[in-house]
Design a protein around this nucleic acid. Structure first.
Length: 800
RNA sequence: GCGGGUGUGGCGGAAUUGGCAGACGCGCAAGAUUUAGGAUCUUGUGUUUAUUCGUGCAGGUUCAAGUCCUGUCACCCGCACCA
């Protein structure tokens, strides 16, 4: 058969679409399988091959599941709000709506050309009113349930994008979008109280099947630590200064305290502090430092001693000095620490610089040289002396503190509340009204969606105002509660909002009454298998798990965890081994590959090129090998004859069915394809194949290269779709052949190989081995000390 | 600094978990076919003169180690003054 991929691919894509082959059926009797890939951001550049690899994994799994008789929901959509589109819109003076529609059209066309078996009847677009209505609805529910609050805070501000960023979006002091330096700025910020769900999000990980490194990253992100809160009296005030520590048992080693420069107690007692000017100067200096400077200057500690009050150590009554220093952050713990220089390197550095006492309380290190953070016997610690177990000494100290009312055990999380507003146009308007009398009032549910108003100039205002703030009609409104004139919130939601619940909308994308029908949610949830990039396993996944947990607490969804299983694909690197990027000019466009080789070749190659979870460089000639493979498969039509089984191939077929079936489940697509290539090699070596066997082979290959396989299936006389056909089964007994090639070793060195019956016994095997013409001379005249026989594998003779 | 991961031919990568290292593919070489190029097909391809030596490096356990143990180096990815 001639492999005319252009004609073949167009033909089958049309037929799948005409027959609605891949549309999921709600409430079908078949077992359900909900597989989901991370929906793309429809950028103007179109897709690159990385997208194709990201979708091909679950594409193969989904196609296999359909052939195994599952009712498969494999949806796709577009996460289309966000800055790149908006920036492009500003630059070209086109409305972001038009830009988005154009980009979505381009992406859709590209995805369809590759032949992905998405359910195109359920496409969601986060920027459509009937979608973001429900994004706003969930936000309103959060507002009702006390999970939304407003605070003035120092925020990460990107002067280039003119936008406030979350900590997550400004890692390393750089803007996640344009990579400019972030500055700190005081602003009103809307927060979502995600920290309230920290423990639920952590415990939920026990019941899901995520790759171990994904779980670990999420645990790390949540960052739970256990320890104690300890209260220190401040001499000369009625105040208790609370600190958080993971090692309350080192309390006898505390020789000073440190507060974050912005700590509010400093302002409260400003009139008691004689060196306030010095402190204010230090504060100013700190606020000027960028994140980069703060992390680079890690070793050099700076600070100022507060001249006005001293702290009292609650366990021994000692007076100790209090400093401010920027190595203590306002954002973690209580913004103040007890310093134990003998056993914390940062405290040690600080003490060393400022000439503060260092008292050893744990034996084992040399505290004149550096802090000792290891375990050991407690000393200089009164009732804790002699303790050697960290856990016991901590427990004992917490008991003691609780008895005196000077402290208690507690936990802390690294995770911070989610800064949820952006001063940009292309996002979901935050459905809130500011009323002078009533304060913050939610837009009534029946008024949702709060539509993004049409406007011409989406450029952010100077000073970081949202462009919406310039629209009088939008801003001025009536208070929904009291009817008095009020003002609308003009900020919009961050891009993470729409993607926090999209998997729910796939289940019922056209519902006008609810975000999704409860019965349908019950049928489809949870997502059985979710695949995406490693870069999203903390932010997007934690945010969306948070929203889902919240909806679960409201009784809106039937399970607490949205994703039963999560995997991640590795990047495709450029041919030069570098990350693909437009600036490096090493981006491979999937359209070019489809034009030159066909969609099936592209699909097979992105899965064959390497381990699915690892980063692998693109290689054009390696891809041509995949083309050759499919050509050879097509050419099998010319030799396929007769029915039934070719005896020489029977075992190879059963082994391949087993291997491919298992490898797909483990995402070992590269070895699955290798196994089919091997089988093809065997077939050509034998020189014949029956029509039945060819049908089996194309069934196995169909999830990978569906167009050519459908064509061959039709060539074999079938009128049904192979994509909805039967997944081949294998007979375990036939996967093993009745002879085995044994390796023969003498003293562990390979000497020869020998073919023996599979059920050979040890005695016969060794006897035959010793007769081998290469083995005999090596053994001759020597004494046999030991004979090792591993059934099915190896014979080893030890001689002296 | 902390946490996790990876080191195997010229290249991408395999190795049913301790049992013939290099499956499969690329590349390369020779041959066939072809007016030629391309494509296709066949054979070969870690190293080395038989023999050896070979999975980052150095030791160890074992009849047997890419796989287990100890130490060490390099690279990659997270988080990062987290108290």
């Amino acid at each position: 058969m001639r492999y005319d991929y252009k004609t073949i691919e167009a033909k089958w894509q049309k037929r799948w679409e005409d027959e609605k082959a891949f549309e999921a059926v709600d409430f079908s009797e078949k077992p359900k399988f909900f597989s989901m890939v991370e929906f793309p951001y429809p950028s103007g550049a179109g897709m690159h091959v990385g997208h194709i690899k990201a979708y091909s994994g679950l594409e193969v799994v989904s196609r296999k599941r359909r052939m195994q008789g599952y009712n498969v929901l494999f949806p796709i959509g577009f996460d289309a709000f966000g800055l790149p589109t908006e920036n492009y819109a500003i630059k070209t003076n086109t409305h972001p709506r038009l830009v988005t529609d154009k980009n979505i059209e381009k992406f859709t066309q590209q995805l369809k050309r590759v032949g992905f078996s998405f359910d195109w009847s359920r496409v969601v677009d986060t920027t459509e009113e009937d979608y973001y209505k429900w994004t706003q609805w969930i936000f309103r529910k959060m507002l009702d349930n006390g999970l939304v609050f407003r605070d003035k805070a120092l925020v990460n501000y990107c002067p280039s994008c003119k936008v406030v960023l979350s900590n997550e979006d400004s890692q390393g002091g750089k803007c996640d979008i344009c990579h400019s330096d972030i500055v700190q700025k005081s602003k009103d910020v809307w927060y979502l109280r995600i920290t309230e769900y920290a423990d639920k999000l952590l415990r939920g990980l026990d019941n899901v099947d995520y790759l171990p490194n994904i779980k670990m990253q999420q645990e790390n992100w949540i960052g739970k630590s256990t320890g104690a809160f300890v209260k220190f009296a401040l001499g000369g005030t009625d105040e208790l200064l609370t600190v958080y520590t993971t090692r309350p048992d080192t309390l006898f080693g505390v020789t000073f305290m440190v507060m974050a420069p912005e700590h509010p107690l400093i302002d409260k007692y400003a009139d008691k502090i004689s060196n306030m000017e010095e402190i204010l100067a230090y504060r100013t200096e700190c606020s000027k430092k960028t994140e980069f400077e703060r992390t680079q200057l890690v070793k050099e500690k700076t600070g100022v001693c507060i001249d006005g009050f001293k702290a009292i150590n609650p366990v021994n009554g000692k007076e100790i000095p209090v400093y401010i220093s920027d190595y203590v952050m306002m954002g973690y713990g209580t913004g103040a620490i007890m310093a134990v220089p003998a056993h914390d390197q940062r405290d040690w550095d600080f003490a060393n610089k400022f000439g503060i006492d260092i008292i050893e309380v744990i034996k084992g290190g040399d505290i004149t040289v550096e802090a000792y953070a290891g375990d050991g016997e407690m000393v200089n610690s009164d009732f804790l002396n002699g303790y050697t177990n960290k856990k016991d000494s901590i427990t004992r100290m917490i008991e003691e503190l609780e008895k005196k009312g000077l402290g208690e055990g507690g936990v802390q999380y690294k995770m911070k509340d989610w800064a949820f507003n952006r001063q940009r146009y292309w996002g979901e308007p935050i459905p809130i009204v500011h009323c002078e009398k009533c304060g913050i009032v939610g837009v009534p549910y029946e008024e949702l969606p709060l539509r993004l108003p049409a406007m011409d100039n989406f450029e952010p205002g100077q000073g970081g105002e949202s462009p919406l703030a310039t629209l009088e009609d939008f801003v001025n409104c009536k208070c929904p509660k009291c009817g008095a004139p009020a003002k609308r919130e003009t900020d919009t939601m961050p891009q993470w909002a729409g993607s926090s619940w999209y998997f729910l909308r796939y289940i019922d994308p056209h519902n006008e009454e609810r975000f999704a029908d409860p019965e349908k949610l019950k049928y489809w949830l949870p997502v059985d298998w979710y695949n995406g990039g490693m870069e999203h396993v903390t932010r997007h996944m934690i945010y969306s798990r948070f929203w889902h947990h919240f909806l679960y607490d409201l009784g809106e969804v039937p399970c607490s965890e949205p994703y039963a299983k999560r995997t991640a694909q590795g990047l495709i690197l450029g041919p030069d081994g570098d990350k693909m990027s437009k600036s490096k000019g090493n981006v491979v466009d999937p359209n070019d590959v489809v034009d030159a080789y066909g969609a099936d070749v592209l699909r097979v190659y992105v899965l064959f090129m390497g381990d699915y979870e690892s980063a692998t460089p693109w290689n054009d000639s390696s891809m041509r090998g995949c083309k050759r493979f499919l050509d050879r498969i097509a050419s099998l039509c010319d030799i396929a004859e007769g029915e039934g089984v070719t005896p020489e191939l029977e075992s190879a077929f059963h082994r391949t069915i087993k291997k491919v079936s298992q490898d797909i489940e483990n995402m070992k697509f590269n070895t699955a394809i290798a196994a089919m290539m091997s089988l093809a090699n065997d077939i050509f070596a034998v020189g014949k194949i029956t029509r039945d066997e060819l049908a089996t082979l194309v069934s196995l290959l169909c999830p990978f290269a569906p167009h050519i396989c459908e064509e061959i299936w039709e060539y074999l006389g079938n009128t049904t779709l192979l994509s909805l056909g039967q997944w081949p089964t294998y007979d375990e007994a036939l996967t093993v052949s009745n002879t085995v090639e044994y390796a023969i070793q003498v003293n562990g060195k390979l000497k020869s190989t020998i073919v023996l019956p599979a059920d050979v016994d040890k005695e016969t095997a060794i006897k035959s081995a010793l007769l081998d013409e290469k083995v005999a001379p090596a053994v001759e005249g020597k004494q046999i000390v030991k004979e090792i026989f591993v059934p099915g594998k190896i014979i080893n003779v030890v001689v002296k």
